[in-house]
Simulated scan of single mutants.
Amino acid sequence: MKRTLAHAFAAATCAAALGLGLSGTATAGPVPVPVTGPEAPAAEWAPKPPTRLHLTVTDSAGVEKDVFLGCRPNGGNHPKADLACDALHDSAGDFDKLKGELRSCTQQYDPVTAKAEGTFNDTPVSWTKTFGNACEMEAATAPVFVF
């Protein structure tokens, strides 16, 4: 008897669904299928992963200056954290693509090495570059390495 009632209920439900679909009073579009994997569109509302970096500048005498930079939320002890985070996000975290600032620098050779270690949007970062002098470094990396 349970089987008969279950079949009757299923048949009535299917008939009702077909009736609604044919009557035109209620139409349902295709059921969206969630897309997953690398082809999935990025959700703009999803929170972005944080950026946490230890930045150092070492001069030719071996004197090292360092700061910590956090983005999302912006902070750390970097003196221009908001500007530095904006510059990093504009370059998609690629330190070689930072816009820097237009400057005229002397040809004096006094090398400095800039280094970044940590994460950018949860992606590991390990970047080091030596510049001819501090002016050249700032011209290429400002405001990230201006501290």
Rank of each mutant, 00 (worst) to 15 (best):
P34T: 05
L102H: 02
A139I: 03
G75H: 06
V67P: 00
V35F: 10
S60D: 14
S23K: 05
R52H: 04
L22Q: 08
G21T: 08
G29Y: 02
T123A: 10
P79R: 07
A84D: 04
A116N: 07
G75C: 10
T141Y: 04
L22V: 09
L88S: 06
K80W: 07
N133C: 06
P73V: 15
V144A: 09
T141C: 08
W45L: 08
L22E: 03
A140K: 12
F9Y: 01
F9C: 00
Q108D: 09
H78R: 03
A40G: 06
V33P: 00
G132A: 15
C135Y: 10
A15H: 10
G76H: 10
L69H: 01
S126A: 14
K129A: 03
P143W: 01
L20Q: 10
N77E: 14
C71E: 07
S60L: 13
P41K: 08
P111V: 07
A81N: 04
V146A: 10
A8Q: 00
G24M: 07
C85R: 07
A40C: 09
T123K: 10
R72C: 09
V31K: 02
G93R: 11
F68Y: 09
A6D: 08
H89F: 07
L5R: 01
D122L: 13
T123L: 07
R3Q: 14
H89C: 00
Q108V: 15
F145C: 03
L69Q: 02
P38S: 10
H89D: 15
T51S: 12
T51W: 03
D90C: 01
A116T: 08
Q108W: 04
A134H: 10
E136M: 12
A140G: 06
P49I: 11
A140H: 03
A26F: 10
K65I: 01
T113A: 06
C105A: 07
P124D: 11
L83Y: 00
T119E: 09
S91H: 02
M1Y: 02
A8D: 00
A87H: 02
K48L: 13
A6P: 00
K65L: 06
G21W: 11
Y109E: 15
F95L: 11
P73T: 14
A142H: 11
A42Y: 00
T130V: 09
H7T: 03
N77W: 09
F9P: 00
A16V: 12
T113P: 02
A134G: 06
F9L: 12
D122K: 14
H89V: 02
T36N: 08
A17F: 12
D66A: 14
H7A: 11
